[in-house]
Write a protein that binds this DNA or RNA. Structure first.
Lengths: 326, 326
DNA sequence: CTGTTAGCGCGTTCAA
DNA sequence: TTGAACGCGCTAACAG
């Protein structure tokens, strides 16, 4: 920047202003400075700018897994909105671990991110303390917690699971199975199971342990879950796979075995992955606003930085998509 | 840090050393300082540290699309290796645009990233100039260019496509179709087509325009491409879908139409997405080292930062996976 | 509209 | 083994 100032024959401050507040300069001065910037090939050092202004232009986002396209979708939404506001995304992957999340939060705060987006509503005590001390705006995502840390942009897992269960019941399925990830370590799975059970209760259908399973993530796991449940409870009419790619794994297994869907058993999934509208049969599922969660989170963060003090609590809802598999 | 120094009754410098070079302090001093750090809940300001030391702990990575699980895989590899070295990942999405890539490179250099990983081997002149001026180490990925910018960690698209075409020929398919993304704007697609044509030539099979198609990305697009080609060239025996999820879209279309694969037509894909081993039939494809590309890129960057000056040019190769669809 | 002065919070250099 | 002084590249606050 010094070189630019020298080349343009102005002070450092004028260069700084030419780049950040061009309207505050006379047209000619501005032009001279910007020409010099071009000629020198100057690239501003925003880390120095951050230090001086005590603000940064980076937002940190922590997702359970980058490889999971659902979270990639959310990250894409965040990234798009941030970029159009001139901010950047520091993205990290907690591997579904709270310890890892804590470490990442520490690292991000140490980088002085100007906001944090966490796809998680459980946090370690130390993580909570660090966030509080840092005083940065935080968005929680992935579920709607009773007592949010700060802002929330999400849908309700319990509501969504309940809605799908009721939908299946409305289509005259009575023996409805439910498969999710481990509810002990995954709050989202827990909430979904809660929604399923709430639906059964409201329908007056008794809970049957043979119709409830908790499994590892993955296609293979979904296939096994299907076969296990059909073996344990041969009269099961529909299975609601409330996790990741479980439903697809299960559907492929029915194809391999030549089981008719929904003739032999109906299958419903949770997230509307692209692929679900192309399988044979097309899969009934919930549509969750993955991209929108990312976008709205970023927007809420931007609003807060611009001075809004309103607590944000956005429920983006969901939709039941009825296709051929139920 | 000042608070910590005061609480511990030492100078700022001692605090700094306690955190960065603990072995250079007496044990008791170190202990006093670290206790104070704990008590105060101090989080170091690494942006100030970066400014003072003129180094940063952030690596920038630009991929064509975060939503594409192939790139998410690569990003995951990078992120894992960086984290274990105490560095961070600034991830961005160019949307397959060179202009956007240029803008992102500028933004990242302005953040003074300590390294750049680009999933692309074509760049705008201005991007090249900025990178050169900044003097940061760069990794190019996604193909093996003739004249790399700096370091390369990839596989060869042309070699991979050629290998698959030869593999199909070895299985006695003669009329082999080839579907890719737009070769005019996508160098990787161009290289793959080149590999396909090279294989035909070496086999003495003449090129047939009816057997070559360029389409948009997406499942639907793959389905259309299949039908189009089967209509234009009813005698096509095998189709090699060399792009994204095209092969899966095509396979689902055969299921919908009840076409036998490989009876009516054989199908091969490019990337070994998880799902390909679960479809019915399982899809023959290439296995590309997506995760490994990310890991090795990060490692090469780390090596360079530690002072290695060797030019890096890693060809991680690929593998043909024969399954049921061919 | 433009320039001057004083830091931002740390690391580097040297002296103690 | 420890500490003091200086500066990284920029911006805030003010003065002109």
């Amino acid at each position: 920047m010094r070189d630019v100032a020298r080349a343009a024959g102005v002070s450092l401050m004028t260069v700084s202003r030419a780049l950040r507040e061009p309207h505050k300069l006379s047209e000619e001065t501005r032009k001279i400075v910007l020409d010099a910037v071009q000629k020198i090939g100057y690239v501003p050092n925003s880390i120095a700018a951050n230090l001086a202004s005590n603000r940064s232009s980076v937002v940190g986002q922590i997702v359970p897994s980058i490889r999971n396209s659902l979270y990639a979708e959310t990250a894409k939404g965040t990234s798009d909105v941030l970029r159009s506001a001139g901010l950047h995304l520091l993205l990290a992957d907690s591997g579904y671990s709270l310890q890892e999340e804590e470490a990442l939060i520490g690292a991000m705060l140490s980088q002085r991110v100007c906001g944090l987006i966490l796809h998680n509503t459980d946090h370690t005590p130390r993580a909570l303390q660090m966030i509080e001390r840092a005083g940065v705006p935080v968005i929680e995502t992935g579920d709607i917690p009773r007592r949010p840390l700060d802002m929330v942009v999400s849908y309700s897992n319990a509501e969504a699971a309940k809605a799908m269960t009721l939908h299946l019941a409305a289509r005259r399925y009575r023996r409805i199975g439910f498969v999710s990830l481990d509810t002990r370590i995954n709050r989202r799975a827990r909430e979904r199971q809660r929604g399923y059970l709430a639906a059964l209760k409201s329908l007056g259908i008794p809970k049957d342990p043979a119709l409830i399973a908790e499994v590892e993530p993955g296609l293979t796991s979904g296939a096994h879950a299907l076969v296990d449940m059909m073996t344990r409870a041969p009269d099961v009419e529909a299975i609601f796979f409330a996790g990741d790619v479980l439903a697809i794994g299960a559907l492929f297994e029915t194809q391999r075995r030549g089981w008719k869907v929904p003739g032999r058993v109906a299958i419903a999934g949770f997230d509307d992955l692209d692929i679900l509208q192309h399988t044979v049969p097309r899969l009934t599922c919930l549509r969750l606003p993955r991209l929108e969660i990312g976008r709205r989170s970023a927007e809420a963060l931007l609003d807060r930085m611009r001075g809004t003090k309103n607590p944000v609590r956005v429920d983006l809802g969901f939709e039941v998509i009825q296709r051929e598999s139920t």
